[in-house]
Amino acid sequence: MATTLVSDLIGRPALDRDGRSLGTVQDVVVRRTREGRYEVVGLVVGRHTVAGRFGYGGTLEPPTPWHRVLRWMRRHERYLAWEDIADPADPVRARVASTDLRAWRGHGHGRV
């Protein structure tokens, strides 16, 4: 059984089907399955995750004066589903074109 560290995965460059850059891997999205395992369902890619790192996109609503700034800061974040990944090695290669990816609209806290 092969293992990888999340820290190893985060920061890898990601390319789309045509070799265009999607930025780097910013985060790994998992879901708890019926069997109680935590399965990777996709990656968040983009240029940086300053705003995402703060928690915007989860339970955190941007405070009154900051809506626009934060939306602008997160404009390049994309969600890359696991089934759309051709090769998770370094660099990560997607099966799809960058224009087919949707923006990352993240989910919140993982209370089990």
Binding site: F54, G55, G58, T59, L60, E61, P62, P63, G108, H109
Partner: peptide
């Protein structure tokens, strides 16, 4: 400031 805005918390 960021966390003081987090409804989840």
């Amino acid at each position: 400031l960021v966390v003081a805005n987090d409804r989840g918390y």
